[in-house]
Design a protein around this nucleic acid. Structure first.
Lengths: 139, 139
DNA sequence: CTCCAACCTGGAGTGCGCTCCAGGTCAAGC
DNA sequence: GCTTGACCTGGAGCGCACTCCAGGTTGGAG
């Protein structure tokens, strides 16, 4: 239910110890508990934040924006609208990202298909992707 | 059919002039033609390479790997297998990337749905995502 | 009580992929 | 011939997100 050692928090969140310390230093993760001796103790709540940060990072949100979000959350319930908007705008960017990624993935597959046809029946030159990639320097 | 000025090549490829020069400097783009005065002239072949680089960059391939690919291509037809493998391995990484991205996108959407339910009928606390994100510091 | 692995701090360093700059050259239009 | 905007080079600088380090402290096992 409660306290996790730094190494445990790192293991569970997938962030390195250094990254956890870094996130605290820049104010992304605030108010992390300590033992009397000064060692960090992460709560389930902290872990929840880390899961969120993992999600936002994996989807390409810059750290500055995550800080903004965290700050808003700390300010209280009256910032909920702004937080929602921030996430929605981010989601829109993620959608574009996914679209671009899948389009480019298709190009990549096409290129690979070209290579797979290479040792095949007819070694037809001039494939649709428009560059031969051989030693032809063409100038 | 043939020569493009640097600015035109930049416009068509979506890379900046500086990036084009940089790509040439590190040997990613080799043998770019020049006028007698020393100004670059990009061919359709060069443009084809740039389109490929665009695809690989957009899908997250590190520049070092693109260099490796370009080098292989310059070495001749006998490296076709290695090039295909390189692209296939990259494609596999892209697939993982797309999977992760769409999973995290779903988490994000869930979070947003939580915010959209906030001003709704019943302001039920304790949503499934397991962190309240309010001022509750919980320690 | 002793040990040692895990932890602490502040600050410097790293890797990537550009991006910017100064100071000079080129070439197309008038 | 002159102007002017696009271009050239080598090299420095930047922004991001960590990552590493030295030198010291903590705390649970034996």
């Amino acid at each position: 239910m409660s306290g996790y050692a730094p190494s445990e928090a790192a293991r569970r969140s997938g962030f390195s110890l250094d990254t956890l310390r870094y996130y605290e230093k820049i104010g992304l993760l605030a108010d992390v508990g300590r033992t009397t001796g000064g060692q960090r103790v992460f709560t389930d709540d902290d872990l929840g934040w880390l899961v969120l940060f993992r999600c936002l990072r994996d989807t390409g949100m810059p750290i500055a924006q995550m800080c903004r979000y965290a700050e808003l959350a700390r300010e209280g319930e009256h910032t909920a609208d702004e937080r929602r908007e921030l996430l929605q705008q981010h989601a829109a960017r993620v959608e574009e990202q996914m679209l671009l990624l899948s389009r480019q993935y298709e190009h990549l597959r096409e290129k690979i298909r070209f290579y797979e046809r290479l040792p095949g029946p007819v070694p037809e030159t001039d494939q649709p992707t428009a560059n031969r990639l051989g030693p032809a320097v063409s100038r």
